[in-house]
Design a protein around this nucleic acid. Sequence first.
DNA 1: ATTATCTATAGATCTATAGATAATGC
DNA 2: ATTATCTATAGATCTATAGATAATGC
Lengths: 222, 222
Amino acid sequence: MKRSKWASDLHWVREGQQDRSRKTQAALLDSAEELFAEHGIGGATIADISAAAGCSIGAFYHHYQDKRSVQFALFERYATEYEDTNRIALDHERWEGAQVGDILLAYVQVTLANDRGFPARRQATVELARAEPEINSQLIKLKAMLDLGISDLLIARRDEIGHPDPELAVTFVLDQLGSMLRTRMQEPDMPTRFGQHPDEDFAHEAMCSVCAYMQIELPAEV
Amino acid sequence: MKRSKWASDLHWVREGQQDRSRKTQAALLDSAEELFAEHGIGGATIADISAAAGCSIGAFYHHYQDKRSVQFALFERYATEYEDTNRIALDHERWEGAQVGDILLAYVQVTLANDRGFPARRQATVELARAEPEINSQLIKLKAMLDLGISDLLIARRDEIGHPDPELAVTFVLDQLGSMLRTRMQEPDMPTRFGQHPDEDFAHEAMCSVCAYMQIELPAEV
DNA sequence: ATTATCTATAGATCTATAGATAATGC
DNA sequence: ATTATCTATAGATCTATAGATAATGC
């Protein structure tokens, strides 16, 4: 039976142990993510992480062997989400009828929305990659997969591109947009730079720049 | 008397104490810079820094009160160099006869050369800014000063710029180039991105992109 | 006499464990 | 009976100091 909207958020029964366990683990990962992003991995102690997750140091060690294993678990969670999202997003059928500019604009918009939603995620992942070479190479592979996926979509539309070397132009543009998006999230405080302007204006100027460089049509929504 | 070129590198006399002191301090700063950049501030112990500088922990504490004071000293050194360089580079007389594209190309080339020469400096400074709010705001001021200086040079040549909003275009372009340069230094390993291409090709494509967006002339050297 | 360095170590901090208690599952 | 959590703490690591030694300056 479907519960009424009034009741749907209430829980009369106690949670099972598995739920409890999952929740603690997730809370520990969330806290680790935030603290790693803010203070670096070395700057976040296990006591900090446990306290932020609302549990004890003992509980921490019940779920994770040590700090390193949290690092790997955190990356695992990130990698799974990242792959799943990209698999859906890069499906060729999804983009039937789309032009080069539409795909690039979507890339910008989706990345902005993602990073706004989870502001610590990007920085925490950077920290993980720096601390663990294994994670670093995994992360490079993940990003390369996304780049290749978008490249495929764009190169399939190479006839639209007026730039004399479409492959080079695609590589350059993905690097350019990726760099700007990263800076926009990591350094929002620079008074003289574009971080002060709203996301919409950023997307607009970025598309103008990209379209002028590649010599493609400006997407309709801009 | 000018010493012969054979002798100019030899030192028969012992260094004075002040030289010795200065050298140890500089070596400690250099080591701290490198280790902060590689492992983060929390990941670099005082023992690590001292060992890398070729001195003891005791010597460290003779020169610096604690880790924090090295952080400030390191930033101080960076800030001084940065300001001095920019004061010279941003002199309006220096750029007489230069066009917008010339100035932007010089910005790209000088930044590349600087970062190649001191690969750890940028990352270490990022770490310092994150650890100390005081350093962070100082750093923002320094960068803002450079941005404003370049902006002034470019806006003084606004007649060359075809973009409908020259001020906006200048802000956007400085953000764009700055972002790409930063990514180029910090993430050189991405196989699908432009880091794989040589600096000359990067500068070329960056200038093509910027000139197409701003609607200015491509500088002669590109 | 002063400055720079070293070795050795006390004290602080952090990690990781042991042993006890509380919550669920059968 | 099993799983999840807690408190208390041993052991490891790091910071920062004390006291001794070596190098320069007068």
